[in-house]
Design a binder for these strands. Structure first.
Lengths: 156, 156
DNA sequence: AGTGAAAAACAATGGCG
DNA sequence: CGCCATTGTTTTTCACT
C-alpha cells in the first residue's frame, strides 16, 4: 500500500471530480505547480491508486432508460457454482456493477437496459436459466439521485 | 434528444472505457481522423451525452475498505419527508450512489467507508435519527466483481 | 519536495477535396 | 468525412533550489 500525503489526497479528490482539468488548474486548486501535479499523478497511476480515466455518459441519452438492481441467490454454494456464475456476469454487457454480498442475497447486480422488456429478458434468458442461479429479485430505479461514485477523502 | 450514429456510439464506447486516449488513438480505434473525433466529442459534450470526465480511484488504496449497500424505508411518504431525506443523502460524502426504487425498499444507497465502525456510525448517527427514516437494512460487499459502470452500446 | 522554463505532444480550427 | 497546416495549450522533462 502506497503512502499518501495531503497533496495526494487533494489531487485525487480533484481528478475524481473532474479529470478534464489541466495539471495547471489542478495545481492552482491544491497549491502545487503543474509539474508536481504531473509527477504525483504518474506516481498514483503507476501505483494503481488511479485505476483509469473514464468519460461519464448519460444513460438516457444513449437509450438506456432503465437502471435496475438485481439480487441473485445461488442454488448451492459450491465453488464451481460460484465461479460459473461469476463468469456469466462478467460476460454480460448490461451489468455495470456486480458485488458479492453478506446477508440473504448472494449477489447484487446493477444493470442498465433500454426498457423493461430488456430487463425481463436479461433475467429470464440469461440469469434464471443458469444452473447456478436459484432465484432473482429485481428493483427498478425510478429515479437516480446520485450516481457520481465519488469516494470521500478524509480531512487529515 | 440528440441523434447518434455508429461513429458516435463507437466513440462513446471508447472514451467511457478509456478517457486518457488521445483523439488520434480513439480515431485509430474507431476508424475516424483525429479532427473528426475532436469535433464529435465537443458535440457530445455540449449535448450532455458525455457528462464529465473522471479519474477512477481504487477505494482500498485510499483506506476505504468497506463498500456497502443500504436499503432505506421512509416512515411516511409525504413530499416533505422525501425531500428532506434527499437533501440528507446528497450531503453525505460517504454516499456514492443513491437510487429511489420500486418494491419494498424506498431507497438504495451505495456507500464507501473505511471500516465497519464507520458504516455503523453512518447508519446510527446519520440515517436512523433522521425523522423521515423508518428503518434501514444493510448489505456489505464482501467482494466486488465489477464496478466499471460501463454502459452497453447496441451494435447498430 | 518543490519551482520555473524549455521541449515535445496534443487539441482545436479552418480550408480544401 | 479525410487530409493538411496552423495555432495555442498542455504535458513532460530538465536544471536548479
Amino acid at each position: 500500500m502506497i503512502e499518501l500525503d495531503g497533496f495526494d489526497r487533494k489531487l485525487l479528490a480533484s481528478v475524481q471530480a473532474d479529470a478534464s482539468a489541466t495539471n495547471q488548474e489542478v495545481g492552482d486548486r491544491i497549491g502545487l505547480s503543474a509539474s508536481q501535479v504531473s509527477r504525483r499523478r504518474q506516481r498514483l497511476e503507476a501505483a494503481g491508486v488511479i485505476r483509469r480515466y473514464r468519460a461519464d455518459i448519460d444513460p438516457a441519452a444513449v437509450g438506456l432508460d432503465v437502471i435496475a438492481f438485481v439480487g441473485v441467490s445461488l442454488a448451492t454454494h459450491s465453488p464451481q457454482n460460484a465461479s460459473r456464475f461469476q463468469k456469466l456476469i462478467k460476460a454480460l454487457p448490461e451489468v455495470q456493477e456486480a458485488h458479492m454480498l453478506t446477508g440473504d442475497m448472494d449477489y447484487l447486480l446493477k444493470v442498465a437496459v433500454p426498457d423493461l422488456k430488456a430487463l425481463s429478458s436479461l433475467i429470464s434468458d440469461d440469469l434464471l436459466p443458469h444452473e447456478a442461479v436459484q432465484n432473482v429479485k429485481s428493483f427498478i430505479a425510478m429515479e437516480t439521485l446520485r450516481d457520481d461514485n465519488q469516494l470521500p477523502f478524509e480531512s487529515p
